[in-house]
């Protein structure tokens, strides 16, 4: 089977994201540092296959977040993200 990256979106990495983030992160809004477009991280385009999650802005393809799980832990890089907005919980 070929790993076809194109049909996937950020929601496909929801399990991996939830291992690292204690909040429900796929609905968090991320603003791309390249084009300033804001969108839920779950709507980002997902690449990287089994090497890791490479989230690209659905608007301009800029890399906004990268997340790799190794046997030792998690590597997160967000230099392509201008900001991350997480909705406050209702309490």
């Amino acid at each position: 089977m070929s790993e076809k990256p194109l049909p996937l979106d950020g929601n496909s990495a929801a399990g991996l994201l939830s291992e690292l983030f204690a909040v429900e992160i796929t609905g968090a809004s991320i603003t791309c540092d390249g084009c300033h477009h804001a969108a839920p991280i779950g709507a980002a385009r997902l690449y990287g296959g089994r090497m890791g999650a490479v989230f690209r802005c659905a608007h301009c393809e800029n890399v906004v977040v990268r997340l790799v799980r190794t046997p030792e832990g998690y590597w997160l890089e967000m230099k392509g993200a201008r900001s991350l907005f997480v909705q406050a919980r209702g309490d």
Binding site: E3, Y47, M51, V63
Partner: peptide, 10 residues
């Protein structure tokens, strides 16, 4: 035997 594709982008 096939040639899997893995890309970091489009």
């Amino acid at each position: 035997n096939d040639f899997p594709v893995l890309s970091a982008g489009p």
